[in-house]
């Protein structure tokens, strides 16, 4: 191998290195930006209490007993409160398919990690909305 071909190799490597340094990384800057989620994503649920008829089909469909229904807690005429336990939920989608009244849906939110086990037990107030506490870390706010 001659001197010049080695030099050529070195230059080729250097050119590749510089090009890679200048381009944007292939990874996402999580949590500043998130990856693409399709519409079918089975993330955490949202409960639309206006449509709910307290038929408890979602509770019966759940294979892991992650849903608890409270029929006393009423906001509208005939709805019920749902308590979700996300330590048990396996995101199978059976409850959403069981709902005939368009009251329960999956959302695209999949980053559910919390500090304590209790925080993963979503009460009716958290099930009805997608808003959540902003994540603060080292003085910066995410989400």
């Amino acid at each position: 191998m001659g001197f010049f071909s080695t030099l050529g190799d070195i230059f080729r490597v250097l050119r590749h290195t510089f090009r890679q340094t200048m381009t944007r990384p292939f990874t996402y800057f999580y949590p500043f930006e998130d990856r693409y989620y399709p519409d079918t994503t089975r993330g955490r649920h949202i409960h639309i209490r206006k449509n709910c008829t307290a038929c408890a089909q979602c509770v019966k469909a759940c294979p892991t007993i992650a849903i608890r229904i409270d029929k006393q807690d009423r906001m509208y005429e005939k709805d019920a409160a749902l308590h979700f336990d996300y330590t048990r939920c396996i995101f199978c989608g059976l409850c959403v398919q069981a709902c005939k009244f368009n009251a329960l849906f999956h959302t695209k939110i999949v980053d559910l990690s919390e500090e304590t086990r209790e925080d993963l037990q979503y009460g009716p107030d958290r099930m009805g909305t997608l808003e959540r506490k902003p994540l603060k870390w080292r003085g910066r706010t995410f989400r």
Partner: peptide, 8 residues
């Protein structure tokens, strides 16, 4: 026992 937790 977990079945009783559903509220049904």
């Amino acid at each position: 026992s977990r079945l009783s937790e559903t509220g049904l």
